[in-house]
């Protein structure tokens, strides 16, 4: 097991290095941030001072090495736009995004998996057909439009929930969280619902397909022949057997949900990293873009690693292989 984990760790580091080169090269390939940073009628002296201050006079490979060196020290540079350390900037926005994403993914799984199992268990019942119709809609309808409809229905028309912002927060361990206050929860509900719909649809489909296939297997028939109840079969056998693909998708989808939070945060004015990246893209705020992309890549790799380890925990056959 330790050998396997080490091997995976080495792989992860290599992938991170490759991504760092790609991100750095990509972000530096176009546009001149100086044009954005300094007004065109600034003196040449001021321009050059700024260029030196940001290290933009160095050759690209030099800038990259400096960048790597700073990364190693946990220094992502300063945002051109906010004139504050990028790490602080992202750290101040990340909890909001994590909170939103976690709420969406957990909600989608907690609701989608049982409904999907039911739809796979009774594929021709009316409820199952309704669940599948909902999942087709969840798959097809663009997130941003659902967000608009949610705002229109629940915020504008019914006035039940706020249309945007994070609401009251509580500070726990120096980090602000919304879900611990009633007002924060009210603010969290719509954006989380919005962000979760696509994942919900995916979980439903996955659980349904897995259950449908499993119900025809000898494993389930044998459990039935032993007189086990349908509830035992679904909760002890089926759930356990479909858990592996679901954990994979849960992990992978956590990353993509994090990315899709960009859209939801924009619609609901949720002050997370998604809004930050949109702002930094439109103002060519390179350090923020780089840090954001590296952060997402890192999250992806960490999640992939966790998924692999979860595999081993869930599947005794794999445990034996890596032992």
């Amino acid at each position: 097991m330790p050998g396997y984990a080490l091997q995976r760790l080495a792989q992860a580091i290599i992938v991170m290095m490759v991504i760092s080169v790609m991100v750095f090269a990509g972000v530096h390939a176009v546009g001149n941030p100086i044009d954005v940073l300094i007004s065109p009628d600034a003196t040449q002296a001021i321009r050059e001072q700024a260029i030196r201050a940001y290290g933009l006079d160095q050759p690209l490979w030099r800038q990259y090495l400096d960048f790597l060196g700073r990364l190693a020290r946990g220094d992502f540079g300063r945002s051109f736009l906010y004139n504050m350390p990028v790490l602080d900037l992202i750290a101040s926005r990340l909890p909001a995004t994590l909170e939103l994403t976690l709420a969406a993914v957990i909600g989608a799984t907690a609701l989608g998996v049982p409904l999907g199992i039911y739809a796979g268990y009774r594929p021709s019942s009316i409820l199952s057909r309704a669940i599948m119709a909902a999942s087709i809609l969840g798959f097809s309808v663009p997130t941003f439009w659902i967000g608009l409809v949610l705002i229109f229905v629940f915020a504008v028309n019914l006035g039940w929930l706020p249309a945007g912002g994070r609401g009251a927060t509580v500070s726990v361990l120096g980090v602000e969280w919304s879900f611990l206050t009633l007002d924060g929860l009210r603010h969290l509900l719509l954006p989380a619902l919005n962000l979760s719909l696509f994942k919900f649809a995916m979980m439903v489909r996955l659980a349904r397909a897995g259950t449908r296939e499993l119900m025809l297997t000898d494993t389930i028939k044998f459990a039935r022949a032993a007189g086990e109840s349908e509830w035992t079969i679904l909760s002890r056998h089926v759930l356990r057997l479909i858990a592996i693909p679901i954990v994979t998708v849960f992990g992978l989808e956590f990353g993509s949900t994090l990315a899709f939070a960009v859209v939801t945060e924009t619609i609901f004015s949720w002050p997370g990293v998604g809004k930050l990246i949109i702002d930094s893209i439109s103002s060519l705020d390179r350090p923020v873009m780089v840090a954001y992309l590296m952060l997402v890549a890192l999250l992806f790799i960490v999640i992939n690693l966790l998924v692999d380890l979860a595999y081993a925990a869930l599947d005794p056959r794999l445990r034996a292989q890596h032992a």
């Binding site: 494993t219 028939k221 044998f222 057997l241 005794p316």
Partner: peptide, 18 residues
Amino acid sequence: GRSIAMVFQDPSTTLNPL
């Protein structure tokens, strides 16, 4: 299971692997 039980052909598919 209590009055009438059954054993299947392929033991690698009847037992739950997990």
